[in-house]
Amino acid sequence: MQVDVTLREGIADPAGATIERALPALGFTGVHRVRAGKTFLFAVEAPDEAAARAVAADLAARLLSNPVIEDARVREATA
């Protein structure tokens, strides 16, 4: 499974903002709304995909993200 964690809309993202400010110097002129985040990859033992997703979603909500400032998205990924 894969969990992507990014700062919630409206929460300051200093890393994303810093990357965006550096882009013009590298010649990237049309790139906007840069958000920095984290990706977690892991395998889940479960009877089916729905059960694996449920485990991943629980893990994402309770540990991998802080819901006060971050959003977590769960998707299937092959390791």
């Binding site: 700062l7 300051a12 200093p14 890393a15 810093t18 802080n66 006060v68 400032i69």
Partner: peptide, 17 residues
Amino acid sequence: LTEAGLLPGALQQNAGL
């Protein structure tokens, strides 16, 4: 304490990184 929910809110990276 914030992560444990004993105080509200969160501490994130300093604005100036």
